[in-house]
C-alpha cells in the first residue's frame, strides 16, 4: 500500500533538494510581510493590515453562523441516527444520509453554492453548515449510543414520550460532550472558511487569493500571519472553555 502510494504521488527528493533557490526566492518575495498602514503607491488593493479587521470579522461570522446552523440540524439528525433511540429503518437511513453529506468536500459544497448564489458570505455559511451537519451528526449519534439505557427506561416508567425522554434521559448524559464537539467543530470551521476564500467566499481566504493574483506576496504573508493568529487564538480559547465544561 505504502509503495503504491509512493509511486503514485511522484515523490522526488532530488527535485526537493534542488528547489532550494525557488523556495528561498518565494520566501524572499513574501518577507518581510507588508505591515504598512498608509497607501504609499498605486496598488490594486488597500494595504493588508487595513483590510484584516473586516476580513477576520467576516471569517468569524461565517464560521459562527455555519456552526450554529449545522449544530441545530446535527442535533436533530444525531438523535434520529442513534441506534438506541429510533427504529432500525430511521437510524439506518439517517446514518446513510449523513455519510453522503460527509463525503462531499467542503470546498466542493462552496463551489456549488457560489455558483448558485454568487460571491459573498452566504454560500460559505451554507457550505460550512452542511459539512458540519455531516460531521457533527455522526459524532452526536455516537455519543447518544454510549449512554446508560437505564435512565431512558426510568423516564419511560414515568410515562414520558420520545422528545421528553431525549430531553431528560439523553441530553443530561451527552451535553458536555456535545458542547465540546461543537466548539471543536467551530475551531475547524474557522480554518475551513479561510480556505473557502479560494473559491470566492468572503473573508481572510478571499484576500489571500486576491493578493496572490496581484503578485503582492508581502501582503499574502501578512494575511496568512493574521489567519494563523486568529486560528491559534480561537484554539486556545476553545481549549480553555472545554476544560471549564468538564
Amino acid at each position: 500500500m505504502v509503495v503504491w502510494a509512493w509511486r503514485g504521488s511522484g515523490i522526488d527528493i532530488a527535485a526537493l533538494a534542488k528547489s532550494g533557490p525557488q523556495i528561498s526566492s518565494f520566501l524572499d518575495r513574501m518577507l518581510p510581510p507588508d505591515l504598512t498602514w498608509n497607501q504609499t503607491e498605486a496598488r490594486p488593493f488597500d494595504p493588508p493590515l487595513r483590510l484584516a479587521g473586516t476580513a477576520v470579522a467576516i471569517t468569524l461570522q461565517i464560521s459562527l453562523m455555519g456552526t450554529v446552523l449545522g449544530t441545530v440540524f446535527a442535533l436533530l439528525l444525531g438523535f434520529a441516527a442513534s441506534e438506541n433511540l429510533t427504529p432500525h429503518w430511521v437510524h439506518h437511513s439517517v446514518k446513510i444520509g449523513l455519510a453522503v453529506i460527509r463525503s462531499v468536500p467542503v470546498i466542493v459544497l462552496a463551489l456549488l453554492f457560489v455558483g448558485a448564489l454568487g460571491l459573498g458570505a452566504f454560500p460559505g455559511v451554507l457550505a460550512i453548515a452542511i459539512h458540519s451537519i455531516g460531521m457533527l451528526g455522526k459524532l452526536f449519534a455516537e455519543e447518544c449510543e454510549c449512554v446508560d439505557p437505564g435512565i431512558w427506561e426510568a423516564m419511560d416508567s414515568a410515562g414520558a414520550n420520545w422528545p421528553q425522554k431525549v430531553r431528560y434521559a439523553i441530553w443530561p448524559q451527552v451535553a458536555p460532550q456535545i458542547y465540546s464537539l461543537t466548539l471543536f467543530r467551530f475551531d475547524m470551521n474557522i480554518r475551513d472558511s479561510a480556505v473557502l476564500g479560494l473559491v470566492g467566499v468572503a473573508g481572510l481566504g478571499l484576500w489571500i487569493e486576491n493578493y496572490r493574483r496581484a503578485f503582492d506576496y508581502a501582503s499574502v504573508a501578512t494575511m496568512v500571519g493574521v489567519t494563523m493568529l486568529v486560528v491559534l487564538a480561537i484554539e486556545q480559547t476553545s481549549i480553555q472553555i472545554r476544560r471549564y465544561l468538564k
Binding site: 437505564g150 435512565i151 410515562g159 431528560y168 448524559q173
Partner: peptide, 21 residues
Amino acid sequence: QFHLAPRLTVLQNVLCGRLGI
C-alpha cells in the same frame, strides 16, 4: 441501579416523575 439523570438536580430528577402527566 437508581437510574437518575446525571447533572440534573434532585428536584429536576423528581420532577421527571411528572413527565407522563
